[in-house]
């Protein structure tokens, strides 16, 4: 995908940054003039992926979460949520509805990936145990007819 605009953001893997990540991504998307529904879809999916990175990737411990986002001239929006945490042994299993590795007081539903998949056009997960996980979320934002984004200089 050729982007006309890109951003990159690193933040600590802390629960208080879940809201920050949603706000940052929705602010970055504003030039695409998304509908309220498109914006909410992306915010929800990003929230799920960032929460997974914090809760599962780093198991609540220290770490850095990276967001890389960009969009193309025709409104294809992409965001990568990257952690360098413990990684996922079996991605297919992890993406099954209701599957969760969480135990103890944390109440995880195992629905994070299912929510991401239903709110985005595509969800691609790359992971290596011990090295981390990258979740790539993509969504086509419908541009109005008179709205064509400029090419990057």
């Amino acid at each position: 995908m050729t982007f006309v605009n890109e951003m990159r953001l690193d933040f600590d893997a802390l629960p208080e940054n879940e809201a920050f990540a949603r706000l940052a991504v929705s602010g970055f998307m504003l030039p695409l003039d998304p509908t309220m529904e498109e914006l909410a879809d992306v915010k929800t999916a990003v929230s799920e992926a960032v929460t997974n990175a914090i809760v599962h990737g780093y198991s609540g411990g220290p770490g850095t979460v990276r967001l890389c986002a960009g969009y193309s001239r025709n409104g294809d929006f992409q965001v990568d949520v990257i952690d360098h945490g413990r990684g996922i042994e079996d991605i297919r299993q992890a993406m099954q509805p209701f599957f969760t590795t969480a135990s103890g007081p944390e109440e995880r539903t195992g629905m994070g990936f299912t929510v991401m998949e239903s709110f985005m056009d595509d969800v691609d997960v790359r992971s290596k145990p011990g090295q981390g996980t990258t979740v790539r979320l993509t969504k086509r934002i419908r541009l109005r007819e008179d709205q064509m984004l400029p090419r990057r200089a």
Binding site: R22, A40, K43, T44, S47, E48, T51, E107, R108, T109, M111, G112, V115
Partner: peptide, 13 residues
Amino acid sequence: QFMDSSGVGLIIG
């Protein structure tokens, strides 16, 4: 104003 699957977890709990 917003809820994700963590909210569902709270209700199920």
